[in-house]
Amino acid sequence: MPASFHARILTLFFSDLLLLASLVYCDFPASLTLERAFPVNQRVELGELRARDRARHGRILQGSGGVVDLPVNGAYDPYLVGLYFTKVKLGSPAREFYVQIDTGSDVLWVTCSPCNGCPKSSGLEIELNFFDPASSSTASLIPCSDARCSVAVQTADSDCSSRNNQCTYSFQYGDGSGTSGYYVSDMLYFDTILGDSQIANSSASIVFGCSNYQSGDLMKPDRAVDGIFGFGQRDLSVISQLASRGISPKVFSHCLKGEGSGGGILVLGEIVEPGIVYSPLVASQYVFLR
């Protein structure tokens, strides 16, 4: 056997939290010496394994931007809630809006004033708000000439109204409900988790939908929220917008609790938490949660 040879190696890195696989090409000697980070006959405390893994993940996250942390409420049980939702802060001054988490669509939209058919109260014990672009000092409408409108109209869901030079949209969801409105640009406020676990208050200007019409289940007050947060892969999703500026990775992670009080974990980035099972997304396709 020659002293070295060119080969394809599949390397596996194990930890108490995650299994990573990487495919590399390299030249290496025929005789290799492999060393364990923790000897097989040495007892290692779980806390030591966790600390090592958190440090490694911290280095990864520091190189790919911060991680945006979002609160999660709701539950899967249709007799209790039947949906999961999070809270976002928009505008100047900032106002809070509760939006349903949806992996089957792309755009973040909230109810705007005025709105036809939009509920004014909710059975989820949350206060509904109406976003008013005229009341925000940092809001601006997206005209037809804006390059971001060109990105939006590449889909069948968006259009450009020549009558008032506004970039508009109309969405239909799988349950038969729908909404329409126009795009605005304004500030989004969020908590960023840095690599050393510190939390920083951050903000960024994003494009989102301003809904002035709703139909179907979106009109029902028993489960009413202020809008929908799309976690799709297209350019106008909040994930894509923040990732394009290096604010957070183009990845989202969630752990949705199904029992007890519900809720869960939701971040734009990677969750570093024991017991999480990861599933890769297929490029240019959507993943629907049932």
Rank of each mutant, 00 (worst) to 15 (best):
F5K: 13
A7G: 05
T11W: 00
F13A: 09
F14W: 10
F14N: 11
S15C: 07
S15Q: 05
L19F: 04
L19H: 06
S22I: 12
Y25N: 09
C26G: 13
F28V: 13
L32I: 11
A37E: 11
P39H: 13
P39K: 02
N41P: 01
R43K: 09
R43F: 15
R59C: 02
S64F: 05
G65T: 06
V81A: 06
V81N: 10
V81M: 03
L83M: 11
L83P: 02
V88C: 02
A94H: 04
Y98R: 10
G104L: 08
L108R: 04
W109Y: 08
C115R: 08
G117V: 13
C118K: 13
E125L: 11
L128V: 05
D132P: 00
P133F: 08
S136Q: 03
T138R: 08
S145D: 01
A147I: 05
C149R: 00
Q154Y: 05
R163V: 12
R163H: 06
C167G: 06
C167S: 01
C167W: 00
T168A: 00
Q172E: 12
Y173N: 12
G174R: 09
D175E: 09
S180G: 06
G181C: 00
Y183V: 02
I193A: 00
I193W: 06
G195F: 04
N201T: 07
S203G: 06
I206A: 15
V207D: 02
N212E: 08
D217K: 07
K220Y: 14
A224E: 04
F229H: 03
F231A: 06
F231H: 07
G232E: 05
G232L: 11
Q233M: 04
L236W: 10
S237M: 03
I239M: 10
S240H: 08
S244I: 03
S244R: 03
R245S: 08
R245Q: 15
S253T: 03
L256A: 07
K257I: 13
S261F: 15
G264W: 13
I265R: 05
I271E: 08
I271P: 02
V272M: 04
E273Y: 10
P274G: 10
G275F: 08
G275M: 10
Y278R: 14
V282G: 00
V282D: 01
Q285V: 09
L289T: 07
